[in-house]
Design a binder for these strands. Structure first.
Lengths: 149, 149
DNA sequence: GGAGAGAATGCAAATGGAATGCATTTGCAA
DNA sequence: TTGCAAATGCATTCCATTTGCATTCTCTCC
């Protein structure tokens, strides 16, 4: 297989997980994807790509990966579906365009100062957060503004 | 009924919705609740309180309220359930304690500057956001730290 | 390299939150 | 008060996710 799979093999081993082709395939797809994917999206892509896989395997694998912190899980009010993405250990958020449904990744994160404030003010120790920002992307802004006039 | 119901009556009317006892009851419960509620939590509370109501009515009512912007909808990775709260039109976020599962409301919001940055940098117009912060609350921090030593 | 143990997978069925179709009831304007 | 549209109840369906169990596969140890 490919070079990165050897990489993943070690990662899985370190976490006490067995290396299987399904797991490699899922990791690879998540790695290639620019935005978080639902279990079903992954399932369809996997069917097209590898021999065959069962949807429950996809769910179980994603669950295991999430518990080992290899994968991050997020949910969206929008359609109620849960999405998964590789934990790149770099901090990232997504902008969601309510018009064209595009997801845009950003590196900015405004939580830093708030974290300190919360610690000082009410002794709350922040360990993580989800931020979901929605609005109009560049393209849709143009359309949106034109229609409004 | 109570004074605030007269209030709600006008609100509903303005939005072109009929005033019913179920709607008042739901609004009242949401008003009294300190944290967002699931449809089912509301259903159980309503059953205990008013004569009888159907779960699908709860869902439909919350949906209608949400579309009229009287109610805000949010979802949590935690249990995957959707929660509803009254739209108080004041901006608010919640801290979620991963240890005791308490929800704490805060008024701080760190999105302001980011909003401007996004507009300038990539012409993204933010219209809304969800922020979910998790960590250890004051009480659990004490326990947590003691155990860690 | 091969056997054995335990983990991973496939398959089918179950679960559970949410949505829906339709008959009935209710709110409200005229 | 009456009539109509909106709201509700009830039963059913939908659909994402989970689960139990039999089978297959990985990996360790010899």
């Amino acid at each position: 297989m490919l070079a990165e799979n050897i990489n993943y093999k070690d990662v899985l081993k370190k976490e006490g997980m067995k290396s299987t082709k399904h797991r490699f395939a899922i990791l690879e797809l998540l790695e290639q994807s620019e935005s978080p994917l639902t279990a079903e999206q992954l399932f369809i892509m996997l069917r097209a790509k590898t021999a065959s896989i069962n949807l429950s395997t996809v769910y179980r694998t994603l669950d295991t990966f999430t518990s080992k912190n290899l994968v991050l899980k997020s949910s969206r009010v929008d359609d109620g579906k849960v999405r998964y993405e590789l934990n790149q250990h770099e901090h990232k958020h997504h902008l969601y365009c309510v018009s064209c449904h595009k997801l845009i990744s950003i590196e900015e994160c405004p939580i830093g100062e708030l974290k300190q404030t919360l610690k000082n003010k009410i002794d709350f120790e922040v360990t993580g957060h989800n931020l979901e920002i929605y609005g109009y992307c560049h393209n849709c802004r143009k359309v949106h503004n034109n229609n409004a006039q």
